[in-house]
């Protein structure tokens, strides 16, 4: 193997890591806000799937990719509204709510998809292209990795500091963290707990919808059943492994994305390992990662407990 070839492969793997990271990062940062607000949302997978399907539908029906992104964000927010209604208003168990929502999303996207295609040829679209930044993308090695990406991947670079700032440097972030640690403190001050939880869940789910939309518009040209293929669950694992801190979650997401990038490249290069084993790597890694994570210091104290006043 020549040195030039190896460098090309490395560049390709790192660039793919950033691309793969983008949808996971949007979703993980959104769900970080949701979980810090005390809602243990297990419906991430279903929300992401809904975002992907709606993006597919709008992209093929209107031909506008940015309209599709907007629709995916809205679809995510609607899913968040359902989760918030069930957890904050009805006070259904958080885990059960999430499971229900995933099954709902899996069924309904498939039904809508089959009704839309109706046995005919499946409409497809051409997704987002790379947008190389002038000058920066010409830097050797770093240029093609960092600065020759989709526009939304550049946006993802800024999302972690933005969420960090929101959580730790704003009044709203303080209230939000309080929701997860001690909602009663807000309640006795006359600040509404449900209203803030609705806000946090809808924001988080909208971000997951955005992630699902990007997954569709940047990686594919058509929808298939179970399109999100467990990425929502990877986000849930990343939150636990990252100890509910922005930096930790970022590290976990990068690790998963790198693993997936390596797996897809190993397929292309033709490593003598069954394809299915490569595909299963992120799931095996999740289990091993969670076995190793012994600290849960960052877990919000009231995460997963429906808040009731009495």
């Amino acid at each position: 193997m020549s040195g030039l070839f190896q460098e090309a492969i490395l560049i390709s793997i790192f660039a793919a890591t950033l691309r793969t990271m983008t949808p996971l990062l949007f979703s993980a940062m959104g769900e970080l806000v949701t979980q810090r607000a005390g809602i243990w949302n297990m419906g991430v997978e279903g929300t992401m799937l809904m975002g992907s399907f709606v993006a597919y539908f709008v992209a093929t029906a209107t031909g506008s990719l940015w309209l599709a992104v907007l629709a995916a964000v809205l679809a995510g927010a609607v899913m968040g509204l359902i989760i918030a209604f069930m957890t904050a208003t009805m006070r259904v168990d958080h885990f059960v709510t999430g499971l229900g929502l995933n099954l709902f999303a899996g069924g309904i996207t498939l039904y809508w998809f089959q009704s839309y295609v109706h046995g005919g040829p499946q409409p497809s679209f051409s997704g987002f292209e790379d947008v190389p930044l002038p000058f920066l993308s010409d830097i050797p090695f770093i240029g093609p990795v960092l600065f020759s990406q989709r526009l939304l991947t550049y946006a993802a670079f800024f999302i972690v500091p933005a969420i960090w700032f929101l959580l730790y440097r704003t009044r709203y972030g303080l209230e939000l963290r309080c929701l997860g640690e001690n909602p009663k403190a807000l309640d006795v001050k006359g600040l509404s707990v449900p209203v803030r939880q609705y806000g946090a869940v809808m924001f988080g789910s909208a971000m997951t919808g955005l992630g699902g939309g990007f997954l569709m518009l940047a990686f594919s040209d058509r929808f298939i059943a179970d399109f999100s293929a467990g990425r929502g669950w990877i986000v849930v694992v990343a939150l636990i492994a990252g100890n509910w801190k922005p930096k930790g979650v970022l590290l976990a997401v990068v690790a998963f994305a790198f693993l997936e990038a390596v797996a897809t490249h190993a397929q292309v290069v033709g490593v003598g390992v069954p394809r299915q084993l490569l595909l299963a790597l992120p799931y095996i890694a999740s289990i091993i990662l969670l076995m190793g994570v012994r600290f849960r210091t960052g877990q919000p104290a009231m995460l997963g407990f429906p808040y009731a006043r009495e």
């Binding site: 359902i82 069930m86 009805m90 006070r91 259904v92 059960v96 709510t97 229900g100 929502l101 099954l103 709902f104 999303a105 899996g106 069924g107 309904i108 498939l110 039904y111 998809f113 089959q114 009704s115």
Partner: peptide, 23 residues
């Protein structure tokens, strides 16, 4: 000529209502 996947969709919808009813 209605897709059979209506059934899983219905199952999911009914489930969400049943969860609220159980509360």
């Amino acid at each position: 000529d209605i897709p059979a996947s209506l059934v899983p969709a219905m199952q999911g919808i009914i489930l969400l209502f049943v969860l609220c009813a159980s509360v």
